[in-house]
Amino acid sequence: MSVLEIKDLHASVILDDETTKPILKGVNLTINSGEVHAIMGPNGSGKSTLASTIAGHPKFQVDSGSVTLDGQNVLEMSVDERARAGLFLAMQYPVEIPGVTTSNFLRSAKTAIDGEAPSLRTWTKDMKASMEKLKIDPAMIQRNVNEGFSGGEKKRHEILQLELLRPKIALLDETDSGLDVDALKVVSEGVNRALTEQNTGIMLITHYTRILRYIKPQFVHVFADGRIVDEGGPELADRLEEEGYDRYMSVAK
């Protein structure tokens, strides 16, 4: 069992002129293994900032509050240490990395996370199996990381990493955006496998309720203006679908 605890987290984005702008204004959230927490909120409310701050993106600065994973202070760790501690962020906009093949990248990541190189035979087998389930073209692993991938391929590639790297807690940032229904199903199945087979705890960031038909959250949190403004069970998502975020926008301001 693992637990990610976020307590009264305040964070700012560091702008190009090195001034800062506060985005997160006191976030409280606890995610246990095997749980799905949907974070839903309007664009610009700070959902990606929350995920990136937990992952340690250098553009964001923590002003106060704490983030711990199984009691360990995540905020003191470097980006790679956080990943090795068991955190994973499926990014909203994965970057292209020229000159680095996907195959080399995946093997390097697996080796780093496990602390030792995976046995070649199991690794190749696991990778093939996961790619097949995610309907990823086998030729993809010879291409450079995310280079020339379609939007859907990039998202599948993120979920492929989720399956192969087996994190304790995964933050999925709008993994559903830009996917057609078929791709959404395939990707959701991947997330559900991580949930049931690896007991991963999931923070599912989304703008729309569509993905919640395939991935069932136990908890729904409404995010507005840098904090959680409402919480409930799956029924809250249904209400959001009907009413939208307008109600919360006025509450937040």
Partner: peptide, 8 residues
């Protein structure tokens, strides 16, 4: 950042 966020 992308590579490091995968533990590298």
């Amino acid at each position: 950042y992308y590579l490091m966020s995968r533990g590298i």
